[in-house]
Design a protein around this nucleic acid. Structure first.
Lengths: 220, 220
DNA sequence: GTCTATACTCGGATAGAC
DNA sequence: GTCTATCCGAGTATAGAC
């Protein structure tokens, strides 16, 4: 698929069905909120701000969501959904053919440079969601688990192929990659000059098993 | 030095000087606040909560700090100060003799298990401080730079000794370790069962150059 | 230096009209 | 379903007495 658009989070893409009007509207809201936050950033944005951006009143917006926290959690879910379509790193069906998750992974990370607001929202909620009562708690646990499982699977394949260090089990390696991704976001937010993708790529390099002849492996 | 106490962040340790009474009191406040947050956790604590814990009124506490944000930033500074005394991983003078920062580093990380409130405060502020206007912005930039520099130096030594992969430059490796530490805190807060130290240790393992007797060594 | 009291702001939630 | 209007709590910051 050759989807290559300027903004992954396009606005106003509502698919209007005859039934379940409410659901469609809700999706439209999420998509627009996503676009706005991606573009204009998130600094502890209020429901009112999102409402304005989406073209509703605060009360009107909260008609679709139980609370502020749920709203933002759903925005993150929608983000994953959109990203999945574009980068499909999570799709279990295709994971076989993506032996090189490396490039897909790096693409997502590079893309994040263009959506600072979402990175901020994600990081902020990551911390807040530590509280088991937080609406996003389950979301993060499930997301992390899924992501790690897919990653571990792909890493194990590389280990079997002798391309990746086998000194550490793939589950732990997956955990490390996840930590690096999250941690690099924090460093990047603090200093936009740091290159998240290059650093993660360097980790891939560092873990790559050296070729016998001494030359560097370009890593499929 | 054999300091080995139950609580690194002891309460009520004020050294009362004749002059600069205000400064001493301020230090005492910070030490107590540190102990309270470490013990009872931080979930977006208000100034009032800290004031109560410290034995002052909210107004009384704010007499010593310009704002809530400055207060919490200073608490983090004090934490570093205390940690430095106990683990001294930052001391430039001694870094030479700590060729194995590995164990010191892991000690700090293990210690963090015992102070969840500080981990939460640190992570939360890490995100908020992305805003250049935030009082903690400079703190984090400077702290990260210092930490990375010390780390990079130690890693470079290990590389020279042929113990650590030389496929990636020490500065980038230091950045990776920092990212992993931050990222693992997030994972740990979400699920206290994850072992931060073990994971970081695994990364050390993964980057360690294989011994000669085993498979072929690349290095250099 | 520390308190009590209060002022003020922000923001989320709700009621009720249309 | 969406609005306007309002309420209410939380929390910071400040004024002023002691």
């Amino acid at each position: 698929m050759k989807i290559k658009c300027r903004s992954v989070y396009a606005e106003g893409v509502a698919q209007r069905g005859s039934y379940a009007k409410g659901v469609a509207k809700r999706e439209e809201i999420l998509e627009r909120a996503l676009a706005v936050i991606a573009r204009e950033g998130y600094r502890g944005a209020s429901v009112k701000e999102i409402a304005d951006a989406v073209g509703l009143s605060q009360a009107g917006l909260l008609h679709y969501f139980d609370s502020k926290e749920e709203l933002f959690t759903e925005i993150l879910r929608k983000r994953d959904e959109v990203d999945m379509v574009h980068y499909a790193p999570l799709s279990p069906e295709e994971k076989e053919e993506r032996a090189d998750l490396r490039h897909g992974y790096l693409d997502v990370i590079r893309h994040n440079r263009d959506v600072p607001g979402l990175v901020q929202l994600f990081s902020r909620l990551s911390v807040d969601a530590a509280d088991p009562q937080h609406p996003a708690h389950k979301y993060f646990i499930e997301r992390n688990d899924t992501l790690r499982a897919v990653f571990a699977h792909a890493l194990a394949q590389r280990q079997s192929a002798g391309e990746l260090t086998a000194r550490v089990d793939p589950e732990t390696l997956a955990r490390i990659f996840q930590a690096v991704a999250d941690g690099m976001q924090i460093q990047w937010m603090l200093d936009p000059d740091v290159d998240m993708a290059a650093t993660v790529d360097a980790l891939f390099d560092a873990l790559t098993t050296p070729k016998k002849d001494g030359t560097r492996d370009a890593a499929s």
